[in-house]
Every structure is written in C-alpha cells, then in structure tokens.
Design a protein around this nucleic acid. Structure first.
Lengths: 349, 349
DNA sequence: AGGAGATGTCGAAGCGCTTCGACAATCACT
DNA sequence: AGTGATTGTCGAAGCGCTTCGACATCTCCT
C-alpha cells in the first residue's frame, strides 16, 4: 500500500504539497506538480478512500435506493441505475446500491455513518415513509444546519407533498393527457386503458395515479369515454382483461397501455381476434423506445426517458453538494412518437 | 454527529470499551455492555464509516461490476444485482455499483483505494481483460500476500482459464445438453436454436458459447440435426431468422430459444404460420421462470437461477474475506421444467 | 529602493475509530 | 494464604489524509 507520505518523500516535498496537487485547492508551481505527478505514477499511488473520507468528511459516494419488488418495469429501473452510476462517475462519485428492503433504516444508517454524501431514491410512493428523513437536506427540523453537514437527496418520482424535496420525474399527468389527446385527435371516442398491476395502485405509486389523472381529465375535456382496467402482466391476465373490456365497451377502438409486460400479449390477442392494428384498433404505449420498436407492431408511444431521469437526478445532487441550486421539482415533458400502431378511427370499427 | 468518545463519556467508560462492545472482539461484562448499548441508543450513535475503514483497513463494502451494454437480458442482471445487495446486507456488507465503462481501471481504482474489500464481476468474457488483476486475490505474482491484505473476487460467469479464480455460474454446457435431450427424448430429429445476438458471440461471452457446445455435443450423441442461428431480439429480426430456418430445414419440429427477447416474437410467428405449439412444433426456452410462465404459451424451460447466482457469489466472497474457503468453480446444475410448449414429435410434422 | 501583496511550500493538528499492551480485580487451586 | 490464570477495562498509538496558519520567496508598484 503506497501512502501519501511515501509519494511526498519520493518527490522530495511535504505531504501537504502532494495533497494540494491532488485536490488543486492551493496553487502549486508547475515544476513541483510535475514531479509529484511523476512520483504518483511511478509508485502507483491511490489515495485511501477511508482516510480521505475521515479527514474531509466527504465520502464521494452517492447512495441509490432501488425498489426490491419486481412488479415495476425492470428494464427502466436498470437503465436509470446505470445512468446514475455512469453520470456519478463523471462527477467523481461512486454509487452505493441499497435495496428498499431496509426501508427508512437504510436512510438512517447511511446518513448517520457518513457512508454516502447524498442519496437518490427510486420508486417513491405518494406518502413515502422515508420522506420525513429527507426533507430539507435530511436535517431534523429545528437543528442548526451547518453548511455541508447535511445529506442532500433527490427523488426519482413525485410524492404527494414535495415541500423541501428535490424530485425528478416524467410528467405523468401530461403523459396521460398526451395519449388521450393523440387518440382523440384521430377520432377515437371509446378508449380503454390497460393499467399497471393492481398492487401498484394499492401502493399509491405516484406515477400510476398521475397518469390516470391525466388520462381522465383530458378524456373529460375532449369528450372521450375512458375505461381503465388494471392488469397484471402476461398473456392470461391480458386475455381476461381484454375480454371484459370488449364486453363492457364493444365500441372500443383505442388502447393506452401502461404496463409494458401487457403490450405484446395485447397485440397477440387483438391479432387473434381479427382486429387489425391500426386499421380497426389503435394502440398507444407508455414504454421505453426500445420496447416500442421491437414489438410485433411498431408502436406509437410516449417514451419513458430513463437515462435522462438518472442523469438529471445525479446532476441535481451534485449541484446541491457543491452548494449550488436548491430544492425543486423537475418534470420532464413527455414526447409522443407516432409509429405504426395508431391511425384514424374508421366508421367500420 | 455523535462520536464514539461522546458515547463513552455518556456511559462513563473509555472509548475502547465502547469499541469492544460494538465489535465483540473482547469480553465485556453484561452490566457495562448494557450501559453502553443504552447510551448508543439514547444518543442515536452511528459509527463513522470512514474512520472505521481507516482504522480497521476494512470498508465492509463489496464492489459489483455490472455490464454497461444492454444486449444481455436485463432482468437477469437486475435480479442478480438485487440478490447480491440483499445477501451482502445480511453479512454486514454494502454494495458499490460499478459499470463496466471504466474497464480494468475501475478494478485498480477500487482495489488501490481500499474503497471495497472485495469484488463481484458480472458478464465475464472468456478472455476478460480484467482477469489478470484478479487472479489469486488480486495480489500481483511474486508479491508477498499477507493475510487480509488482498482483494478477493468472485466472477459470475466462467472465463476460459479459471486458474486462481472463483467463479459461480449456471452450467451452460449442461443446460444446452438438457434442452436437446428433452426434445430428442420426445422424438424430435430436427432442432433449431435461436441464439443470442451476433454481438454476444463476437464478444466471446462464455455462456453463449458453452450453451452451444452443450447443444451440439448432445445433438451429436443423440443423432439429432441442429441448426444454430444467432438472432437479435424483436419481431422483425425473428421473422427473418425463422423464415431462413424453415427454408433450410423444412422438417424442423423443435426449437431451443436462448434470447429471451425472441421468445414472444417466435411464438407469435409460429401461430401466424399456423404451426401449433406444442402439437406441430415444440419450444424449449432458456429463461427465468417468470418469463416462461407469462408467455403466451406456458413454456417448457430451463431456468436461469439469477438469485441463486447472486447469493452464492456473495457467500463465497464473504467466506474468503473471513479466511474460510479458497478458489474454485461452482457450476449450478440446470433444471428443466416441463410446461405446455413441448410435446412428442408427430409424424405429421 | 522599499514595502505591500501574491505565490508556493511546509509543519502540525486532528478527523473517529481500532487495537495492542498494561493493569486491576476476581477466581480457582494447591 | 499464596500463586497463576482469567476476565474486564483503560490509555495511547496510529491508520492516511486534509487543512489551517505560518513562513519564505518572488513580483510589482510608487
């Protein structure tokens, strides 16, 4: 193990000088800097993370809390996680992976031990039990908040009360509205929504409920009839749901699908029933572009910008850690890409 | 920030006593222990991770290196990652998430800085460039390996040369063999393999090549004809591949699918062509059970035991860190579950 | 030419913890 | 009663780094 002191000796300078070369916090003459850098390279020196964390009170680690459950769409989570990790690295941070399992205790543990400098939470519920620990930088109300002594956090997702929090999320309400708008614009009057699994709604996950709000309010505005049915993923569940939908609203010509694992089953079933997409029935999906493109019909879709969300979350967090920028909510505007699964409502349908 | 010293003062003991209560490395009288524990609770003390790492030369962090690319089946990665994280926690470790992006440098950085005590690598290639840094606990050949001073690692995946390495993987060769065996046993003489995307083979990812080996050698043994075609996921690619297969081998009645994103497209296409599953054509998939169950036909499949792999990897690593157990290769035996997608080959087909 | 201000370097303190050796106090035997 | 082992606690050193104030040098202005 090579230490700072050894580098200093090798370069013929003091330890503090080496430290300043590394951190750049004081000016160092070009010649000295070169000599030190040379020694670092020659000896293969790597600063000890623990010592650094102890002395500087900064670990350069961001904690990322991901949900344990797998009823959410996994590829999106993964994409966010990877975006977080790579973006963090570009800012000199590493990422600690926490699962939701420990719940609020994980927040306390990480905060208390100084293991991480900051936190990103995914899959936030509307009334999340972790939130009280995070508001206003994690400093309990009434405590003196010395600068740099708090634990900034960013949520990916939007709780009911965003006071004192920083959040990044897709604007799900607008997403819902956009889907209805698109179908309504094509003349569809009867739209069915294939929602997430019932468990997702029961948990009061913000995105699911907000999407529904958006769908409904725009449906009201455009005079469209909306039928919302939660649906577990998979073929069998989709078959049951679809049958019910056509029972209740035989005239349904538009579909909005939020549960990605229902997309392909839906298309297969429609085909099987002799309903052509998009001639007889139009389908809009809310899913990553990759899914939309790979499906058996190229899907008109609103993309879930997973990478963007991860990236933005980290950038906000880093800004906070650097003392720039405070709380606030970032809602990414949805974008609808028209592909081959939607078309004008026909009289025949 | 509550420190050890404050706890000691509050409990009326010395700092070292508190430390020993925490670590259990020396015996402490019951009364003292209680008093200390009481103080810890009362003050809400959390040991500082940096200080601990510095003093003990142990960070209690395991680094997990996941691939950046998304051409591998993502849910499997995610499941492994989550299993690693939760298992690690039960052993008192946290998990640091590294992406493949930095490559071998990440290994050096983490090893050199003492950020992590150990490492788990996923998506290992047959001749992975990170391997030289890991052999024999990460200690360069010739160096004196003091106990506890090295960086144990476990690979999830199997490189060509496993000397001085610890590996956990599904036995892909046996998996391939098992698939052919099952189909051959049902009387199928012409089997097509829908492989991973070409890029996966080009990268010399062990699992893809080994599966193929297993498939081929068992095909030879059972006198079955095998046609292997790599396939990007998605509907269009699958359509092209399938057409080619039936062109070249019109008598094909058995399919083995390794690329999960080709499963549903394959089923849809077969249906479309009027080939019934399992009456006309049998399909065996290599995929997580969840996928097999949710598909439009309940698939006979060999499961990918993602959780098991993650768990085993951590357990091996912890054993190494505790000085128990050394290197070695763990190959999990594949298990085939018969569902509704395979049946006897009929004369008609 | 002389002093004010930059500029570059150093020594030392200290971050919060672990761990080693020392030392009382207690206990179990002759 | 005296010895040796055992048990429980403490003080101090030190892990490798950052950072503050001090100091020596150099630069530039009047």
């Amino acid at each position: 193990m090579v230490t700072l002191a050894e580098v200093a000796q090798h370069a013929g300078v003091s330890a503090s000088t080496v430290s300043y070369v590394l951190s750049g916090k004081r000016s160092i003459s070009a010649t000295t800097r070169q000599r030190v850098e040379e020694s670092i390279r020659e000896l293969g020196y790597h600063p000890n993370a623990g010592a650094r964390a102890l002395a500087s009170n900064r670990s350069n680690i961001i904690a990322l809390m991901i949900p344990l459950r797998t009823d959410m769409y996994v590829p999106v989570m993964m994409e966010i996680a990877i975006a977080v990790a790579t973006t963090a690295r570009t800012h000199g941070y590493d990422v600690l992976l926490l699962t939701g399992e420990e719940g609020p205790d994980a927040v306390r543990r990480v905060t208390g031990s100084g293991l991480a400098d900051a936190m990103i939470l995914m899959d936030v519920e509307l009334e999340d039990e972790r939130l009280p620990l995070l508001r206003d930088g994690g400093v309990p109300a009434g405590a003196q908040s010395r600068a740099g002594d708090d634990q900034p956090s960013v949520l990916i997702g939007l709780p009911a009360d965003t006071d004192g929090l920083t959040c990044v999320d897709l604007d799900w309400t607008a997403t819902g509205a956009l889907c209805v708008e698109h179908l309504a614009g094509l003349g569809h009057r009867d739209i069915a929504v294939i929602g997430e699994a019932p468990a997702v709604y029961e948990r009061h996950t913000g995105f699911a409920e907000r999407t529904l709000d958006g769908l409904r309010s725009r449906a009201r505005e455009t005079g469209v009839r909306l039928l919302h049915r939660p649906c577990e993923g998979g073929y069998d569940a989709m078959a049951v749901t679809l049958a019910r939908i056509f029972d209740e609203r035989p005239g349904t010509t538009g579909f909005v699908v939020q549960n990605e694992s229902a997309v392909e089953p839906l298309l297969a079933l429609l085909r099987q029933q002799g309903r052509a997409v998009p001639e007889d029935v139009s389908v809009v999906a809310i899913c990553p572009d990759q899914v939309a493109v790979q499906a058996s019909v190229r899907l008109t879709s609103v993309a879930i910008p997973a990478q963007e969300m991860g990236r933005r979350a980290v950038e906000h967090l880093v800004a906070k850690l650097d003392g720039r920028g405070g709380d606030g909510v970032v809602l990414l505007p949805p974008e609808l890409t028209e592909r081959a699964s939607t078309g004008p409502a026909t009289a025949a349908s």
